[in-house]
Computed example of a mutant assay.
Amino acid sequence: MRAIVFDGTANTLVDGITVRDPGAGEVLVRIVASGLCQSDLSVVNGKIPFPAPVILGHEGAGVVEAVGPGVSTPAVGDHVVLSTLATCGQCPSCAAGRPTMCRSSFGTSATPFRHGDTAIHSFAALSTFAERIVVQAGQAVTIPEDVPLSTACLIGCAVLTGSGAVLNRARVEPGDSVVVIGAGGIGLNVIQAARVAGAVRIIAVDTNPAKEPQARLFGATDFVDATAGDPVAAIRDLTGGGADHVFDCVGGEAITRQAMEMLDWGGQLIMLGVAGPDARLSVPASTFYLDRSVLGCRYGSSRPGADIPKYVDLYRSGRFLLDELVTRTYPLADFEVLLDDARHGRLDRGVLLMPA
């Protein structure tokens, strides 16, 4: 089979890759579509250290081709959306229904792929830039066959992360005010989840004014061009003092400091953007005296087995926009074109389509 292999310097389309057979509790999935996420770019540009060679990609959907011993769900032929959460299923966090807090689901490194005698790492317990992968059965959530896999793949990261941050972590309520810094793939899902949650004011902030129409399509009531003046002053003016929730979908010391200043008394900052490993956040201690808080958020505090079907239902009912997230699709051979488009901000999401 073929896959995009990152050797620590360059990405190369390689034929002749093999993947091991599924073991107990595992399934083999033929990847149909995969989105390119900022975390993949962060490995390529060195922001996230990761061993090489590796097959990146963690936003995928496909069809189950084989199941290992003990697997009853999903079944061969099922269409599935894939989750990065390869949990143990036994720890207190798993038992409490908090899979993003399972320590077994974070930071593990496996080599299920080979190219000749060379072992190749998986990424985020997936590696969806390959034509076939092996995952835990619980990572493959069945969806109806009428949902396009080219759209459904984005649920696996952009939707779970962005929408989950709103509905699971921040718990935005009707009447709340929301600021979303960064109107990319994650930010647009924060925006539309805030709309579904009943937020009355949803303000998108971005340095690219061309993103305003898309942000408004997904539910933004206002748009602030961060290059046109002081975004903090603009937010305070629009909200009458500050927002109930600010979602930082970009990351970085200066942006996070501004995000804190956008909060109203009792407001909360939810951090989604990945800052560099050496980044340090510095804000005045007085910022917290009026019940302001900062919340980290891993993967939207998601429960994929429950959340993926919920988002599919919202999509099928017309309340969630997913097709509109896909700016462009690419064959595997055009992976470098996809990378260039993503680096230059031309995409909400670009999607790789695998050959049938």
Rank of each mutant, 00 (worst) to 15 (best):
S293A: 15
G182L: 01
T239W: 02
V166Q: 06
P304F: 04
N11W: 00
F223H: 11
I203Y: 05
L269T: 14
V5Q: 01
A96K: 07
D146T: 07
A234H: 00
H79Y: 12
P53I: 08
F50T: 09
R103S: 11
M101Q: 15
F320T: 09
L160R: 03
G23L: 06
L352T: 00
G46S: 15
V246Y: 00
G252D: 02
G240F: 14
H79C: 07
G185A: 12
G198Y: 05
S163I: 03
A10W: 03
G68F: 09
V246I: 04
G182R: 02
L36Q: 14
A137H: 03
A152W: 00
G300E: 10
E253Q: 15
E65H: 08
S302K: 02
D307W: 00
R169M: 04
A170H: 05
G241C: 14
D244W: 01
L352H: 00
P22M: 10
G25C: 10
Q214I: 15
A119M: 04
D313C: 02
A152V: 05
D323Y: 01
A61Q: 05
V190W: 01
P174L: 08
R2K: 15
Y299W: 05
V27G: 03
G60K: 01
L188G: 10
M1E: 14
G16K: 03
A124D: 08
L154C: 12
P144H: 06
M101H: 13
